[in-house]
Computed example of a mutant assay.
Amino acid sequence: MIQINERVSIPKKELRFSFSRSPGPGGQHVNTTATRVTVFFDVEKTRSLTELQKMVVKGKLRRRMDKKGVLRISVHDFRSQNRNRQLAVDRFVEIMREALQKVSKRKPTIPTKGSLYRDKRVKKRRSQVKRMRRKPSMDD
């Protein structure tokens, strides 16, 4: 089981792994071994998440998902497939944890007297600068 947070854990069998050759330079080793790891997690078909959690995850992670609702995370940081695999699982946990975190509502605040005073001073100074840029009128 992969623990996401205190309420959500996902069985390892729900994650699917794919291995391929890493992009970029690297010599003979990179050209012969499949070190890039891609993790696939089907958000639509999982039993580990409630319907509400699925909706939240799909909303927050829609850019990382395909049209069928499969979350995809690729890692090719290391030369070792095992290290990339572990890093991919760690990133998956981190991404899911952030997606399932509740967002607290913003409480509107009243500006302090000091901040209102400073804002007024800044506005006044700015208007004076702009006034000085104008062409002089005949009355001046």
Rank of each mutant, 00 (worst) to 15 (best):
V43R: 06
S104R: 15
Q86D: 15
G27Q: 06
N82Y: 13
Q28D: 03
K120M: 06
N84G: 05
N5V: 05
D90R: 10
S9F: 14
F92L: 12
I73G: 00
T50Q: 05
V70W: 05
E51W: 09
K102P: 03
G114M: 03
L49V: 01
R21V: 02
D77Q: 13
R63L: 15
R21E: 07
K54D: 12
L116W: 00
R36S: 04
R121K: 13
P25Q: 13
G24R: 11
V122A: 09
T109L: 10
R79T: 15
S22Y: 05
L52E: 11
E51M: 14
S20P: 04
S137C: 05
L87A: 15
V103N: 13
K13P: 00
T50L: 01
R83L: 14
I95R: 08
K135S: 12
V37A: 07
L71Q: 04
V8T: 09
V103D: 12
K107E: 10
V43D: 06
Q81C: 13
R121N: 15
G114L: 02
N82C: 07
S74N: 11
R72N: 08
G114F: 04
A99P: 10
V89A: 01
V103Y: 11
K68V: 01
R16M: 06
K58H: 03
E14T: 08
L71C: 07
G26R: 00
H76A: 12
